[in-house]
């Protein structure tokens, strides 16, 4: 899980072009939206694409979005739970 969280932070920074943000600046439980990292609705779309591109996971239910993208940790938990078994 720790490795997945670390990878996710790097991928989020790259996908969203978060200049001047380092992986260690993002807390595992820090909210990604609003008062946390300050992401917005366009970023949410980018995160959906990130899940599909890197982890082959399609977010089937849009209502799950706020729960899944609450923090890096919740994203990692969702990936662990839903990643296709090889």
């Amino acid at each position: 899980m720790d490795k997945l969280i670390a990878n996710l932070k790097v991928q989020i920074i790259e996908q969203l072009n978060l200049q001047d943000t380092k992986p260690e600046d993002i807390g595992d439980d820090q909210p990604l939206f609003n008062e946390g990292l300050g992401l917005d609705s366009i970023d949410a779309l980018e995160l959906i694409v990130l899940l599909q591109q890197h982890y082959k996971i399609k977010l089937s239910n849009a209502e799950d979005g706020p729960k899944v993208f609450k923090s890096v940790k919740t994203m990692a938990e969702y990936i662990t739970e839903h990643q296709p078994k090889v």
């Binding site: 996908q15 366009i42 779309l45 980018e46 694409v49 599909q52 591109q53």
Partner: peptide, 13 residues
């Protein structure tokens, strides 16, 4: 590159 799938929205917008 992605075969017309998984397109990121920012560049399009």
């Amino acid at each position: 590159e992605h075969n017309e799938e998984l397109l990121t929205p920012t560049a399009f917008i």
